[in-house]
Lab assay of single mutants.
Amino acid sequence: HNGKLCKLKGIAPLQLGKCNITGWLLGNPECDSLLPARSWSYIVETPNSENGACYPGDLIDYEELREQLSSVSSLERFEIFPKESSWPNHTFNGVTVSCSHRGKSSFYRNLLWLTKKGDSYPKLTNSYVNNKGKEVLVLWGVHHPSSSDEQQSLYSNGNAYVSVASSNYNRRFTPEIAARPKVRDQHGRMNYYWTLLEPGDTIIFEATGNLIAPWYAFALSRGFESGIITSNASMHECNTKCQTPQGAINSNLPFQNIHPVTIGECPKYVRSTKLRMVTGLRNIPSIQYRGLFGAIAGFIEGGWTGMIDGWYGYHHQNEQGSGYAADQKSTQNAINGITNKVNSVIEKMNTQFTAVGKEFNNLEKRMENLNKKVDDGFLDIWTYNAELLVLLENERTLDFHDLNVKNLYEKVKSQLKNNAKEIGNGCFEFYHKCDNECMESVRNGTYDYPKYSEESKLNREKIDGVKLESMGVYQILAIYSTVASSLVLLVSLGAISFWMCSNGSLQCRICI
């Protein structure tokens, strides 16, 4: 991952900044910058967002509201009850120091605090018919004063009620008058409520006091790749198909172990950190130390980045220098085999997901714990399936590479015959000098055995068991695999060879 928040398929997220979902939807004055928000790819909250409900109280069923919003990608904020005409018999300019803005008392931008007009609070009834052709999110509140005197001074009615009804919602609220500790300079409380109004449905408000009335509502448009994440990451000019709280993932790998919460087309989250597919040879310690064997393909974004291909070729060293050249036929066979294998694994496992966190309130801790156990169970199954699949494929890959290298080895052996000696570690020792032209003939299969047989015969008789390297004779190393990324691999195959001279070296080696 890149540690950044990015656009998702070209669409920017909605960053709530210092506000949370509650503050944004109710219209906390400190969240005025969010009022123009219309569309987004996903919503970003920060872990310690401080601006929620400015007048103390709870947004009821907040967790369910977050779940609903996680599939919303755009909205239209509109005046559901026009301020100047909807409440002619009531005062609608209630403000509070708890919702101060720029040093002055204020109130929510989407709600109206209705109080008595003169000395009376006549029963009010108002309704709205949803003609938007889509779901409408309606929010309101109920004020709970701290004393009967406060109730009387604001609403005149000691036994007030609030009723809200639609086809799918029907509740009646009565204020709970009680002494409470002071929070944000208030002994009173406000509880906030919401409902989704279906197209064509009607919502009716009736009250004799204590109503925090809707002013603006939201017509919602769903987008199934949307979601809500909690993150401290910063926004950058970048684009992605998959976003996590820790950063964007741009990967076609089937798995990731970065974060379980994802938005967009994302690899499946697994616990494993070692889900690797081999593309090189079986481990040979001396070669492995030099980083030549054991190439791997990573299938977990965050564990290993991208696929690494092994390729086969020849390396030689003689009086004229040293050089490398790919054996294109065996390399292409290996590439085709690995590509098919990788595609097979991805096809089997690479279903892209959006995974969002589930919200539970403080009273639902047991449910949250149960949900976590269920999620953990599914996660263990996914991890096991992934590891088992790759384990089985790896064994076949190792066998496949062994065969490829063996074929190259036999190709060289059949040409050199007794003009060189096998020394048991995949290397041959020449009994004759071999210049670049000679080396090329070994690589392309045109090695002239009779041409060098007499010199080889004489050297075999002279050496008589002495280690060949100390006599200045020449080696050919018969097994060799270097490691390159897919891009470098293609470039390498396009070149005939490249040279690395070893000044004054008397050794001649050709490596497979």
Rank of each mutant, 00 (worst) to 15 (best):
S330E: 08
T351Y: 08
N340F: 08
S330N: 09
K241E: 04
E455W: 12
E265V: 05
K274V: 02
G264M: 02
E301T: 08
V412A: 13
N425Y: 15
T244K: 04
G465L: 11
A495W: 14
K411L: 04
H432K: 12
G280V: 09
V488I: 15
A325K: 02
D327W: 03
K451D: 00
K241A: 15
V261F: 11
N404R: 01
V261E: 08
W499M: 14
Y312N: 05
E347F: 08
I423H: 12
I258F: 01
I496N: 07
I308Y: 08
A495R: 03
T383P: 03
I346Q: 05
S344Q: 12
H315K: 06
K268N: 09
Y312F: 09
R271L: 13
K358Q: 13
V412T: 15
G306I: 08
D435T: 10
Y384S: 14
V345T: 02
W382G: 08
C238P: 03
N503V: 13
L253S: 15
D327N: 08
Q256I: 06
D376Q: 15
K365V: 02
Q507G: 14
G445F: 08
T279N: 02
L379W: 11
E387I: 08
G445D: 10
V491A: 12
T397A: 11
A326Y: 08
K411S: 10
L408D: 06
T273Y: 08
V473N: 11
G323S: 13
F400H: 06
Q475I: 03
P245A: 11
I479H: 14
A295T: 04
E429Y: 02
A326L: 08
G323Q: 11
R509A: 13
T262P: 00
V483T: 13
Q320H: 02
I258W: 00
G264F: 05
V473R: 09
F299C: 04
K406W: 06
Y447S: 04
F498E: 14
I263S: 02
Q246I: 14
E429D: 15
R290C: 02
N369E: 10
S486I: 05
N436G: 05
G291D: 07
G377E: 10
K413E: 09
V342Q: 12
F378A: 03
